[in-house]
Design a protein around this nucleic acid. Sequence first.
DNA 1: CGACGAATGTAGCCAAACTACAGACCTGGG
DNA 2: CCCAGGTCTGTAGTTTGGCTACATTCGTCG
Lengths: 298, 298
Amino acid sequence: MSQGANVAGATLLETISSRMVSLRQSERKVAKLVLEDPVEAMRYNMAGLAEAAGVSEPTVMRFCSAIGFSGFRAFKLELAHTIALGMPMALTAIDEDDSLRVMTEKVFSRTISSLDRAYRHLNGEVLEQAIEMVASASELVFVGAGASAIVAQDAQQKFPLFGIPCQAPADYHQQFISASMSGPSTVFVAISNTAKTRTVLRVAALAKSKGAKVLAIVGDRGPITEVADLSIEVNTFEDTDLYTPTVSRLAGLVVIDVLATGVSFRRGPVAAERIREMKEELAQMRSVEPGDPGGEPG
Amino acid sequence: MSQGANVAGATLLETISSRMVSLRQSERKVAKLVLEDPVEAMRYNMAGLAEAAGVSEPTVMRFCSAIGFSGFRAFKLELAHTIALGMPMALTAIDEDDSLRVMTEKVFSRTISSLDRAYRHLNGEVLEQAIEMVASASELVFVGAGASAIVAQDAQQKFPLFGIPCQAPADYHQQFISASMSGPSTVFVAISNTAKTRTVLRVAALAKSKGAKVLAIVGDRGPITEVADLSIEVNTFEDTDLYTPTVSRLAGLVVIDVLATGVSFRRGPVAAERIREMKEELAQMRSVEPGDPGGEPG
DNA sequence: CGACGAATGTAGCCAAACTACAGACCTGGG
DNA sequence: CCCAGGTCTGTAGTTTGGCTACATTCGTCG
């Protein structure tokens, strides 16, 4: 998505922060200004930015080079990119005084930024191995608690498509049973943003002890990643704030999408054909029609 | 998010397409080039773009004016914005020959673009009314099928936070019962991307006949919106393709986030305090600790 | 067939990004 | 304490590139 001079998986502003120390005194003034209000910085041209920071134009130029860009133009382009991904509102706390419009923008911005961040930080090799692992499973179990339970549920809807038996037990009790019944050909997917949800940790450990392969989908390293054979780290913005909705589950869902798509590639054209048929039938089933399965139940 | 010369809720490329007819012959050459490969167009400067399109520089300039921009600079900025939101890959079909990296980028891009689109097309007034409706409910019922069921489940996790009794019956049978038990103070939220899922339509109609207010969350107008008192339209990209994951559910989740946040504003600081307490306790409960609720079940 | 108006390109202007250079500052050694 | 080295920062000039006034061509209509 980004083609700038960034280090892998870092946003422009993060790059600036990290290189702050290696900047000269006056260059830092520029850096500070940009970090404080990227949107405002965006409006300036070189001369304007120089004046606002209280330095000369070549200093701004040097700043751009120091960050890793060929010039001011390139820098501004990348800044625009970063801003477009929702930066302005994404890191501002959601406030009770916000108008509905502003609040909506913040929620969406934050979500979009988080997805972008998650994408940047995804480890391609781990993903590759995860797809391999899931594709070779003869049974799949998804487990999560709270918001992560939603992700598990979603996964459970997707993977049967590829002919892999698949469950997402809802409560701890059932999860426990599934875990204890799993074996070497089971892939047990433990989903937890904190990577330390106790119940999830327990069942993952149990499944592992029964010989199952454990795949963790987490927001960060933690006890669960210790137990897991493989961990997909999904980096999102922390929900530090009171009103901030949980954004991790969304990133989790998208990762599930990627996994599912990857697995479906592995299954080849035959599976693809079956999926197509199924989709068509589903569409027909769903729509309103004279014929009447699912009338009044009872 | 966008501050360009766009018509409300339209992406730059959509704007160009729509104004194509009113453009002069040579300006259209420029427009075509930009639409065909926005990313490539982005790399050019004015002279380059002019040459690539086989026209003169002032023509490019006139093109920018015709689209509604003050000049080439402003145009390029908005183009950068559009591209940043995932355009390049967002509308390309996902292909079995794609490398894992490319496929991942496509899935994320598409999701991000879709969320951006959903945001742009959201009707603020409808949202306002929806929040009002939900906030004044004494009981909430969320209903959806398939992918939308996930959204319903998610909603069901959120709204109890505000002290509103809330359910998301999983199967048609239970949904039917909930619908028939609802009354004037019930808000019945029907979620369906197609707006014509039959079972959802049925229960929504039933709830309405019992006096409940029906709020629809849909991807488009359809039978369900006919029944509903209020409909939030969540515009995403159609999943035309075989491998394209369902992106509508994600947009649905974010809309739920917005609704929930809006409602929590209404409830004021007292509720806020209670939510904070709850979050803290939840965090403690979740983490691994010596004390041991939730040991082996049975 | 000529004249008017629209459409497009040519040439020049001006602003803004970039670069070479020189003065100022700090640092360390005598 | 002062001088030499290097580093940092600003001044001034160059060049690129966006923008505009004007000329030319093409099409159309009287």
